[in-house]
Amino acid sequence: MKYFFFLDTYGKRHIIVAPDIEVAQVVAERGGLQKEDLYELQADTFKVSGFLISDR
């Protein structure tokens, strides 16, 4: 399984777990979300320490 960062059209951020990006898209669609951005999180996705998602 892989982790995907999903940004919906309302600006809300989600982490989706799926075997590939196509299945991640299906998961989002079944959840009633419309895609603004979707990409796989990999070890080198981020270069700086910080919050990925926060309720602050």
Rank of each mutant, 00 (worst) to 15 (best):
Y3D: 12
Y3L: 13
F4P: 10
F5V: 05
F6M: 01
L7Y: 02
L7E: 09
L7F: 02
L7V: 06
D8H: 07
Y10M: 15
G11T: 12
K12R: 15
K12E: 15
R13L: 12
H14C: 11
H14L: 09
H14Q: 11
I15F: 11
I15Q: 05
I15C: 05
I16S: 10
V17M: 14
V17T: 15
V17Y: 13
V17G: 13
P19F: 04
P19V: 07
P19T: 10
P19A: 07
D20H: 14
D20L: 04
I21Q: 15
I21Y: 09
I21F: 11
E22K: 12
A24E: 11
V27G: 11
V27M: 10
A28G: 10
G31D: 07
G31A: 08
L33E: 11
Q34A: 13
K35F: 00
E36H: 04
E36F: 02
D37L: 00
D37P: 01
D37T: 01
L38S: 03
E40C: 05
L41W: 01
Q42K: 03
Q42M: 01
A43T: 00
A43H: 00
A43N: 01
T45V: 03
K47F: 06
K47Y: 05
V48E: 11
V48L: 04
S49M: 00
S49I: 00
S49D: 02
G50F: 01
F51C: 05
F51H: 07
F51P: 13
I53L: 06
D55V: 04
R56P: 09
